[in-house]
Write a protein that binds this DNA or RNA. Structure first.
Lengths: 213, 213
DNA sequence: CGAAGCTTTGATTTGCCTCAAGTGGGGTGG
DNA sequence: CCACCCCACTTGAGGCAAATCAAAGCTTCG
């Protein structure tokens, strides 16, 4: 967010976003229904968001890595719409929303950057909907890996070597398929020479081919 | 959007949102890739949004009715991310985005209302993802009808009597199932006394039961 | 070192898709 | 005005991808 500001204004933003917080593995950053006060920018670690439907079932709605922002759905109702659970020990910047909005009224570039952030989330979810409604199980898994790879690359990490912070069950839940199906897709991709799986560690040999599966 | 403003300020908003436009059935309001200049508030009629994936397939990402806003995904990249196609002759307010952002910097209630609008879209899509990844074909159709009913009620129409502006194929595409499956779900709900279908016209007898299917 | 949880793989079942045939309604041209 | 055609819809039969059920190997961690 700060990248859009010049030095004078970065200070103003830092005054608003001055606090941060640790979240240990398995701990909740916020819960569905909690009163909304702040957005959270993930500094390190990773987090999943989960909604629990009426009859006890859970659904993983997203995986977040360092640099991504949590809590955007809470603005609409002044309450978080999901639980955010750390997948490993993580740290977040606390962004108090009232002061943040106030600063957006003053700093045009910050305002625009914030609007882009919200809009990007809309586009991301829209793409995920397309994936969930049209694609086969294997394509979903492939797209999931390609997406992770792309996001790692954006943040300066290797796009070929990834460590999955979530279980097969969480991946399956996120993709709308069962954990056994996720496992079979991994095995098949490995048999076809597209990647190598070893538990939580995945080595991608051919991201382009994976994107075309 | 205007509901959050007092009389003085409504004038300011009206100065920004002064133009409107007709879109005839089948016509495109905007296309994926078009340069982003404006959001569109649907005044009357209905519109679907469609993304075309790489290999020619289309995916319906949303149905919009009067009072809802189109183009929110375009803010992130300065280009629309989908086609918006009128399902019947419709009219839209044109909301030039630059002036709109400027006014949001001046009017705090307008700014907040706009943030809520974006956030609501995020929550809506998040719910749709849950639906697509976890639910059976029949539940998807039931949820689709309940959602339509709720939105009609919000806008002051009868929540029990609806006229579908889209085909079975478009519904199926939106829900990630085939048109035959949509048709079978309608027939089954009718057999169970939950509703009456006659082509495009649907009479809901028991919205609560439908929500629990 | 043992227990609990995660992962892989195989066998069987099932819900939805595919293919196919027939109906009905609305628009068009004769 | 009517006959025709096209398109959207309904319904049935059979097949397939993924779910479910089951079992064994592997990790992690107290």
């Amino acid at each position: 967010m700060a990248s859009c500001l010049d030095d004078d204004h970065v200070g103003r933003l830092e005054a608003v976003v001055s606090h941060w917080r640790m979240v240990h593995r398995g701990e909740r950053l916020f819960r569905a229904g909690d009163h909304f006060r702040s957005l959270y920018a993930l500094r390190s670690g990773s987090v999943k968001t989960v909604t629990s439907d009426t009859c006890g079932g859970e659904h993983v709605t997203g995986f977040f890595m360092a640099g991504e922002t949590l809590g955007l759905g809470a603005i609409s109702t002044d309450a978080y719409d999901c639980d955010a659970i750390a997948l490993e020990d993580s740290s977040v910047c606390v962004i108090p929303f009232g002061p943040m909005e106030a600063l957006c009224r003053e700093l045009k570039p910050l305002q625009h950057q914030f609007h882009r952030l919200l809009s990007t989330e809309i586009v991301r979810e829209s793409r995920q909907m397309t994936l969930l409604s049209g694609m086969s199980a294997e394509r979903r898994v492939a797209a999931f890996l390609v997406d992770l790879s792309r996001r790692l690359q954006q943040r300066g990490y290797s796009p070929r070597s990834l460590t999955l912070r979530m279980t097969r069950e969480e991946i399956g839940n996120y993709l709308g398929i069962k954990l056994e199906t996720v496992s079979r897709a991994f095995s098949r991709f490995q048999r076809e020479g597209l990647l190598h799986v070893d538990g939580k560690h995945v080595e991608l040999f051919d991201v382009e081919a994976l994107a075309l599966v």
